[in-house]
Design a protein around this nucleic acid. Structure first.
Length: 283
DNA sequence: CGAAATGATTGCAG
DNA sequence: CTGCAATCATTTCG
């Protein structure tokens, strides 16, 4: 257990400790490369614990030896007045060693406890999030808005994005989960963002798919100062995607989009259009 | 400081 | 197992 934590291992600099920290990081879900700043704290504390442990252990060992020799001396002294069998000496020594070993076990236990506390605190810190870098969110948004019609990246796409953003696949999934739901919740506000990113990536992906007649340029002329008027991005194509609520077909590029999905909370102030990718069974 | 933004977690459903 | 929705906990912004 302590060995696993790199505490009771060989007392060299930081090899095993580093491994332990890395393992902990992996368990937490970090990339082990970028968030080293957070690990340094953990590692420093682990090192401290290890140092204390070894110091104490050495102290006990030394005390044990001293005590043993002391007892031996006493016995030797006594041997002048009475015969002392080697067996008795052995017995005494073993008793002493047992005693000290129990003390050491206690030390190990308390050390173990300290490590566990440290570890749990470190794991609890998983909520201590760091915002992604500007560039990472840029990349993610780019993908999201260029696949707005079906923002469900495949496993490969997630890996790709994760690599590009220096985050984990799980984080990508989290991000898309959050993004989808928050986008849906707030279409009005995020519209501008959508347009921005759509414009940004207008030429890149997907136009290959849209080779249909309709010009795909989303190009809301941003004229209206207020965000009042927004036309759903739906950069063209395939947002009819699954939405296979039989019948339906799809109503041209115009997005009056009555996909029922009555969002309760948002009062109808502007007839906010709804997004298509609500897969939810909602017949 | 409080509110908004945001990444992570939890519970639920299929 | 994946996604959604609600919620938590932290960070950032005004």
């Amino acid at each position: 257990m302590l060995v696993a934590e790199g505490v009771a291992g060989p007392e060299k600099g930081g090899g095993s400790a580093g491994a332990a920290a890395a393992a902990a990081a992996a368990a937490v879900g970090g990339t082990a490369s970028d968030n080293s700043t957070e690990h340094s704290d953990y590692r420093a504390k682990l090192t401290q614990i290890r140092h204390i442990y070894h110091t104490e252990l050495e102290k006990y060992e030394q005390a044990c030896n001293e005590f043993t020799t002391h007892v031996m001396n006493l016995l030797r002294e006594q041997s002048r007045t009475r015969p002392i069998s080697p067996k008795e000496i052995e017995r005494m020594v073993s008793i002493i060693h047992r005693k000290f070993s129990s003390i050491q076990i206690q030390l190990k236990q308390s050390t173990c406890e300290a490590v566990m506390i440290l570890r749990s605190r470190f794991l609890d810190a998983r909520r201590k999030r760091r915002n992604f870098s500007k560039q990472a969110t840029e990349i993610l948004n780019e993908y999201f808005y260029s696949h707005l019609s079906n923002p469900y990246p495949s496993e490969e796409a997630k890996e790709e994005l994760a690599k590009k953003c220096s985050i984990t696949v799980a984080q990508v999934s989290n991000w898309f989960g959050n993004k989808r739901i928050r986008y849906k919740k707030n279409i009005g506000k995020l519209q501008e963002e959508a347009n921005v990113y759509a414009a940004k990536t207008a030429v890149t992906a997907k136009n290959s798919v849209a080779h249909g007649s309709q010009a795909n340029s989303p190009s809301t002329p941003n004229s209206a100062g207020s965000s009042a008027s927004y036309s759903v991005p739906h950069t063209g194509d395939l947002y009819t995607n699954m939405q296979s609520i039989n019948g339906d077909s799809y109503q041209g590029s115009q997005v009056t989009d009555n996909t029922q999905s009555q969002l309760g909370p948002l009062d109808s102030e502007d007839g906010i259009p709804h997004i298509g990718w609500s897969i939810q069974t909602q017949n």
